[in-house]
Simulated assay, not measured.
Amino acid sequence: MTQALAFPVPNPLGNIDQYVQAVNRYPLLTEEQEHDLALRLKNDNDLDAARQLVLSHLRLVVSIARNYLGYGLPHADLIQEGNIGLMKAVKRFDPDRGVRLVSFAIHWIKAEIHEYIVRNWRLVKIATTKAQRKLFFNLRSLRGEGSSLSPEDVQGIAGKLGVKPEEVVEMETRFAGGEVAIDRGSDEDDERMAPIDWLADDSAEPVEVLATAQAERLADEGLKGALASLDERSRNIVARRWLVEDNPATLHELAAEYGVSAERIRQIEAKAMQKMRLALSA
Rank of each mutant, 00 (worst) to 15 (best):
H107Y: 11
I79N: 11
D202E: 15
E253S: 15
G259Q: 02
G162V: 06
N24F: 14
L278V: 13
A65I: 09
V168H: 10
Q18F: 01
R241K: 11
F136H: 07
I16G: 02
Q274H: 06
L55F: 02
E112T: 14
L86H: 03
P10H: 09
P206G: 07
P151M: 07
E152K: 14
G98R: 04
L60N: 03
M1Q: 12
D153R: 01
K88M: 08
I268R: 02
G225S: 04
Q21F: 09
K91Q: 10
L254I: 05
I157C: 01
R233C: 02
V90E: 12
A50V: 00
V238G: 02
N247I: 04
N67G: 12
R217D: 12
L139D: 09
L78G: 02
L41S: 04
P165D: 09
R233G: 00
N83P: 10
E152N: 12
S203C: 09
T2K: 12
G72S: 08
W198Q: 13
T173M: 14
V209I: 13
L278T: 15
L218R: 12
E172H: 13
R235T: 01
E172R: 10
K164N: 11
G146E: 15
L47V: 01
A105E: 06
Q52T: 02
E208G: 01
A270N: 10
I237D: 06
H107Q: 05
L254G: 05
V118Q: 11
V118E: 11
R233T: 15
I113R: 05
R51G: 00
I64D: 07
A270F: 08
A4V: 12
Q214F: 10
V169N: 09
R97K: 13
N45R: 09
I117K: 05
G82I: 14
E216C: 04
P151E: 11
V260P: 03
G82F: 13
E152D: 15
F7T: 11
Y258K: 01
A4K: 00
N43K: 10
I182K: 11
V90P: 08
D48M: 02
D189G: 06
E257V: 03
V169C: 04
A262L: 00
E81M: 13
L5W: 06
V61N: 02
Q3P: 05
D231Q: 03
K42S: 03
R25K: 13
Q214S: 12
R51S: 06
E31T: 14
R143S: 13
T250M: 04
A270K: 14
D94F: 00
Q155Y: 08
E170S: 15
V244F: 04
A213G: 08
A239P: 01
S147G: 11
A255L: 08
M1K: 13
V23Q: 11
L101M: 05
L101A: 07
D231H: 04
L73W: 01
R143C: 08
L39T: 02
G85H: 11
L223F: 07
S150H: 09
D190R: 08
